[in-house]
């Protein structure tokens, strides 16, 4: 009986968080036409538009938020501290209203492959560090042993990496982007689908910085985030990051906000400000 009660509670929770709210942020406009035959009763209630083919009806469903998504939206967009840190992470400045700068998200499960030149203990600690990201919805990270199954490669470089041009000597080796670079492939809708991180291990004088650099650059590449010295020392986006064995709660929150939904429309700083305004009316009962 007790087991049944637990199962019932878990199921009820799952169903309630999966339930739709009818709240549409208007940022997912692409249509996915599927056969009406594949829908269950609840899904049939959510048909937005349709057309008829020779022997089927293809339908597109509404793209409203689930209850869990709305809850997360309200937690993030009504919290001034989170919004400030998020805008700094994505647009560099919290006051940005720029319509041209767009957020970038991964629209694929990230399958990371480590080149054999990366020490095993570094690899092990890296994987353990990023394990908590499993709780971030819409962001999936996996580690693969075969390069041919990967879309994210971390390897050493055989050429000199210079990110800072003539100012190279002004930046200490502890700067997250010194002796390391990343290159991400983006599709037409600002979505990432593959990446390569290169680290100049030979020229890295303090080898103990290797893990810290890989962790920071990997985090940056999850949204082409901006590093800055104003960020807390506990944040991977800080130029003063104090290496820690666990990822900070705020960094996880930033990712949760960033991956609230995979948006198919371009999201600028202006749109983020509009979402903040929208939260004032949507989240009044929270």
């Amino acid at each position: 009986m007790f087991k049944f009660l637990i199962l019932f509670t878990v199921l009820s929770f799952t169903i309630s968080t999966m339930a739709q709210t009818g709240v549409d942020l208007g940022l997912n406009k692409k249509k996915k036409f599927i056969s009406i035959k594949s829908l269950n009763k609840a899904e049939k209630e959510r048909i937005e538009d349709f057309f008829i083919t020779d022997n089927d009806t293809l339908v597109n469903l509404k793209n409203d938020l689930t209850e869990a998504e709305l809850k997360l939206f309200c937690e993030c967009y009504t919290n001034d501290t989170i919004i400030k840190k998020y805008k700094e992470a994505v647009f560099q400045y919290s006051w940005s209203r720029n319509k041209k700068l767009k957020i970038r998200q991964w629209n694929a499960e990230i399958k990371v492959y480590f080149d054999s030149a990366i020490p095993k203990d570094v690899k092990k600690e890296f994987i353990a560090f990023y394990k908590p990201l499993n709780e971030v919805k819409n962001l999936k990270i996996d580690f693969v042993k075969n390069k041919d199954a990967s879309n994210y490669v971390i390897k050493t470089s055989d050429t000199i990496i210079s990110q800072f041009g003539a100012d190279e000597s002004d930046y200490k080796e502890t700067h997250p982007l010194k002796r390391i670079s990343y290159n991400i492939a983006t599709d037409n809708t600002y979505k990432f689908y593959s990446a390569i991180t290169l680290i100049d291990l030979n020229r890295l004088e303090d080898k103990s910085l290797l893990l810290q650099k890989l962790k920071q650059v990997f985090f940056i590449s999850l949204g082409q985030f901006v590093v800055n010295e104003r960020a807390d020392e506990t944040s991977l986006l800080s130029t003063r990051y104090k290496n820690s064995s666990t990822i900070s709660k705020m960094d996880i929150t930033l990712l949760k906000m960033h991956y609230l939904k995979i948006f198919d429309q371009a999201i600028s700083a202006y749109v983020i400000n509009e979402l903040v305004k929208k939260s004032k009316t949507l989240c009044t009962d929270e």
Partner: peptide, 8 residues
């Protein structure tokens, strides 16, 4: 260089 794995 861009499609660096069989998958891609």
């Amino acid at each position: 260089q861009r499609e660096f794995s069989n998958k891609l």
